[in-house]
Structures are given as structure tokens and as C-alpha cells.
């Protein structure tokens, strides 16, 4: 059975379409990742699936329940670990967990036992009776995760679980997330804009850009779909078309294109093809000023599917601010 079924989901805030006809399914026990740049519609999707927002159109079913019509039932079986750290600074770790238990009507004895379990699982037992204001950022995030687990959710939503954390803490959080899937068989839906995170954790990934899902598959197949290594060249040229044609004549070249001032070439056996390509270009009088060769990665997959790099966000500060305002006002 599928844990999550999403069909042609749309969410718009005024003129801004945050989620545009998204469709996907997540299997039970799967660790499913939503990968995309900031503002791509990841959090909006999570907010719809966790019953915080109502979709403009389309359908979403979580754990067999419709998120609009059966929101109450959905809420009982999901856990959300939001982007922000919401655990209470003024309370101890244990008190925070007991507060969560209260929200889900767990009985006190059972809740105490469960709290000890999840604290143990996330290595927080020693800090349980300390106020959260003494916790480090990583500990707070772990407590947040622990709180999300208190009521044994079937499906756990993690919104940017490692945003703003240092490298060691990130790796630690990854290990905990894997443990949840491997040992508890939990279905986990996570969003991230870190390629390495999606690659290291997820069974399957959906790449989302401007509210649209552009590709869904396992990280491995996505990388394989690139068809080989990537070579990027900066070449002195008069006409990019000539250069592209020239490159395409080489046998092991599968695809060549000119974008953003660079020639982007997909090749087999990059190590051997590269010298050959340089020789060909030089012979025709094209001076190569820069060469980059990359092994297939999700970074390249993203570029391939969306035509732009994940890091190099286009747009201005004002535009970003305006979009935020639109979303805020539309939600008000």
C-alpha cells in the first residue's frame, strides 16, 4: 500500500503558484526526498500533506486518509519535524516530550516510558532534565525529532532536517533518520536543498523546481540517466553552434549544449574523451581557456533537468521579499 498518494496537487497564493500539478506516491517504509531550491514549493507541499494548508486543487491522501476531508485522522498518524526549532527553551527536554504526549492524549505512564525510549534513541538521556536553553543547536534538533516520534507516527515529515547545522551534526542526524527507517520501518518524507543529503539518505527523490516535479527516481537511476561524465569547457569562439557541431563529431560524446557561456558535454569514459576533445578543438583553431570534468552527481542531475544550478539562485532580494510577502498575505 502507498503511504502517500498525491495527484495533480496545486496550491496558489494569489498569482504565485507554489505547487503546480504535482503527482507522486510514497511507498510504506520508504525514505522519500523532495529536492529543490528555496522557494520551489517543498514546504508548501509538506504543509498540505500535514493538514496545515488546503490545496487549491488536486488530491492528497496520507496513510489512507484524505488530507482535506479526514484531516483529524491524518493528524493522529503523522509526525512533523518542522524547519524551525519549536521546542520550548523554558522547559526541560523531558517536559517538552511530556507536553507533546499530552497533545496526543498518551497516558502519563506510557508517555514517560516512551519519552525515555526516544531520548535513548537520540542520545539525549543525560540532558533530559536540563532546560532546553542549555542545549546546542544539534541537541535541540534531536529533541525536536524525539518529540515528533513520541506518539509512534506511521509517517514522519522532516522539513529541511539539517538546515543550519554543522557538518558533524548533519551526519549524526542522517544516521538517526536512517535508523528510524531501518529499525522502525517508518515512512519518512523529507525535504532538502542539500544534494548530498538527498543522495546519502533517500530511497527515492523527486526533484521539484518552480512548483513542478521534473523527475522522480532513485538517486542511482537519476545519476545514471545522465548517461556518463560531464565535461564543461570555456572556449574562445565566434559561433557556439560550430563548436557544438565539432564536439558532437567525437564518437564517445553523447550530448553537447551551450548554456551560460559554457559548453556542457555528456560523454562516456571522460578520462579518455577529454584529451581527444581538446585536440580536436585546438586543431580547428579554438582556444580552450578552462576545463572542468565532473562525475555524475545529483548536482548534475538537477542542472540537467532544470537548466540551472541549484546554488546560483536567479532573482533579486526584492523579488524574494515580495514573494514572501505574497505568501504571507495570501495565508493571512
Amino acid at each position: 500500500m502507498s503511504a502517500i498518494i498525491v495527484e495533480r496537487l496545486v496550491k496558489s497564493f494569489g498569482k504565485l503558484i507554489a505547487v503546480n500539478e504535482a503527482s507522486f506516491t510514497v511507498d510504506e517504509g520508504e525514505l522519500f526526498g523532495f529536492l529543490g531550491p528555496n522557494g520551489a514549493g517543498k514546504t508548501t507541499t509538506i504543509n498540505i500533506l500535514t493538514t496545515l494548508l488546503i490545496p487549491s486543487s488536486g488530491k492528497a491522501v496520507v496513510g489512507g486518509f484524505d488530507v482535506v476531508a479526514e484531516a483529524e485522522k491524518v493528524r493522529r498518524i503523522i509526525g512533523l519535524v518542522p524547519q524551525d526549532i519549536t521546542v520550548d527553551d523554558d522547559l526541560t527536554g523531558m517536559e517538552n516530550l511530556m507536553l507533546h504526549a499530552g497533545l496526543y492524549h498518551l497516558d502519563r505512564q506510557g508517555a514517560k516510558r516512551r519519552a525515555k525510549e526516544v531520548l535513548e534513541l537520540l542520545n539525549l538521556t543525560d540532558a533530559a532534565n536540563r532546560k532546553v536553553e542549555t542545549y546546542s543547536g544539534g541537541m535541540r534538533k534531536r529533541l525536536e525529532l524525539a518529540a515528533g516520534l513520541m506518539h509512534h507516527p506511521d509517517i514522519l515529515f522532516l522539513d529541511e532536517p539539517t538546515l543550519g547545522l554543522d557538518v558533524q551534526t548533519r551526519t549524526a542526524i542522517w544516521n538517526y533518520v536512517k535508523k528510524l527507517r531501518d529499525e522502525l520501518g517508518m515512512t519518512i518524507f523529507l525535504t532538502t536543498h542539500y544534494m548530498d543529503e538527498a543522495d546519502a539518505l533517500c530511497d527515492r527523490i523527486a526533484i521539484i523546481d518552480h512548483g513542478r516535479i521534473v523527475a522522480i527516481d532513485t538517486p542511482k537511476s537519476l545519476k545514471n540517466s545522465l548517461g556518463g561524465d560531464i565535461i564543461e569547457l570555456e572556449v574562445m569562439h565566434n559561433n557556439p553552434e560550430d563548436v557544438v557541431q565539432l564536439i558532437n563529431k567525437i564518437d564517445s560524446v553523447k550530448k553537447a549544449a551551450f548554456m551560460d557561456g559554457l559548453f556542457r558535454v555528456t560523454v562516456e569514459r571522460g578520462e579518455e574523451t577529454l584529451p581527444m576533445m581538446l585536440e580536436t578543438l585546438l586543431r580547428k583553431g579554438h582556444r580552450v581557456t578552462r576545463v572542468i570534468m565532473k562525475k555524475p552527481s545529483l548536482e548534475e542531475v538537477f542542472l540537467e533537468y532544470t537548466g540551472r544550478a541549484l546554488r546560483a539562485e536567479q532573482g533579486s532580494w526584492e523579488e524574494a521579499f515580495r514573494q514572501r510577502m505574497i505568501i504571507q498575505r495570501a495565508r493571512a
Binding site: 500535514t50 496545515l52 493528524r75 503523522i78 512533523l80 524551525d84 526549532i85 497533545l103
Partner: peptide, 13 residues
């Protein structure tokens, strides 16, 4: 602002 309200709203409270 701190996101706690959302935490409440996704719970069955």
C-alpha cells in the same frame, strides 16, 4: 512566529 503554533495545528488538538 517560532513555529510552535504549527506544531499544535498538525496535532489532533
Amino acid at each position: 512566529r517560532l513555529g510552535f503554533l504549527n506544531k499544535l495545528l498538525v496535532s489532533p488538538v
